[in-house]
Each structure stands twice: as structure tokens, then as C-alpha cells.
Amino acid sequence: MMQHRLSSALWFCAPFVVLLVLWTVLIPYFNVNPRLFPHLGSVIQAGLEGIKDGTLIQHIGASLMRVAVGTVLALLVAIPLGIAMGVSPVVSSFLTPLFRFFSVLAGIAWIPIATLWFGYGFGAITFVIFNAVFFIVTYNTLLGVSTIPLPVRNAAASLGAGKWAMLTEVLLPGALPNIVTGIRTGLGFAWRGLIAAEMIATNVGLGYMLFVARDFYKTEVIVLGMIVIGVLWLLLDRLLLAPLERATIERWGMVQRS
């Protein structure tokens, strides 16, 4: 078992090694201008420098902080609201189109108005992230609650569940697979929205780092930023969100693909 996991991890890394080798060989071979695409060495150097003088850490920290604050705020509002609205089939079917409409707009489309309302900076960007997560999670929570079969809710009531027990024992766990899926989708949009918003509306963060580097044709910083963005999202998605989703959906046999 252990050996199997190790070998599959190695196989997962192999293509990246090939890619890196191609990178180190091909770029000098074709004599590519570093203003178009950087050498691997200069990217590594840029990374080390960024860590040493703390700017890279600062950018990463700022981006993650914004995501965390926006997401937590959104979840605190979205989940209770989604459950409250999902309990009544009439209310949930009435509100569904509304939330679908706003999920479509989630994230990036709010950047112009957010920067006008909050000015450039932390507020506008957090607002964009809040938006991306809030509408999608509310919609999914509402959907999740309304897909709990009525007999299951009736069963809990006839076994003596009060309002609070109904919430914690039935509605929340019943909607959880949808909520997790919603968080995963919402964070996906939020992450993109974050990068886009940071390019426009701030002076710190990964998106800003990329966009400023473009002004000076510092491709090594751009590529470094892209790798950092990719790795961070991959870690977040594959190590946290995807396993959570699998755990709830598969174990409970609630196959709900969206």
C-alpha cells in the first residue's frame, strides 16, 4: 500500500521533471530572449530573492488573507441564509432563478463597481471574493436543502426532533455535499477574481506582482508568480476541497454531480 502510493506519487511528478528538463535545455538552445521567456535559473533566483527580501511572502500572504477573509465572511452569511430559504419549497423555487442570475455575475463582473464603491484596496478585493463565494454557496445550500427528501425530514420530526435538532442533524448534513461542492466552485471563481482584481485594484498581492513585472518585462517574476498561483490552488483544491467533497458524497452514497 505504502509502496503503491509512493510509486504513484513518483509517476505524478515525472511529467513535471520532463517539462523542467525541456525548459533548461530548449530555452538556451533556441537562444530565447529573456524578455520573452525566462531561463529556469533566473526564475529560481527570482524566487529565492523574493523569499529572502520577504516580498514574495508578503504578496502570497496578502492574497491568501483576502481569500480567507472574504470566504469566511461569505460562508457565515451564505449557509444560514441558504438553509433558511431552502426549508420551504415555495420560497426556494421562487428564489432559485435569482440566485442563478447572481452566481453568473459572481466574482469578476463585480470588479468595476466594487472599486467604485470601496476604492482601490483591501475592501474592493474582499468584496469581489465575498461575492464569488456568497452567491454560489447560498444557491448550492438552498439546492441541497431542497433535495433532502421530504420523508427524511418527516422521519426526523416523528422521532421527536425539535427545530435545533432538525437543523444540526438533518438539514446541515443533508445539504453538506452540495455546500462543499458550492464552496469548491465558488473558491475557484474567487481565486480567479482575486488575481484579476489584484491586477487592477491594489499594490500588493500575487496578481499585482504579475502585472507590475509585465511593465518591466521581468518574465522570470511573471512565470514565478504563475507557478506559485498554480501550486497554491492545486494544494488548496486537491488536498482540502476535493477530499472533503469525496468523503461526504461517496461515503453517504449521495451521488450528486453538478
Binding site: 427528501p149 420523508p151 427524511v152 418527516n154 422521519a155 442533524e169 438533518v170 443533508g174 453538506l176 453517504w252
Partner: peptide, 9 residues
């Protein structure tokens, strides 16, 4: 219940 209505979680 006819549909069992067990709590899947």
C-alpha cells in the same frame, strides 16, 4: 416510510 427515509449521513 415506503422510501425508508433513513439518514444517509
Amino acid at each position: 416510510f415506503q422510501s425508508f427515509a433513513l439518514f444517509p449521513w
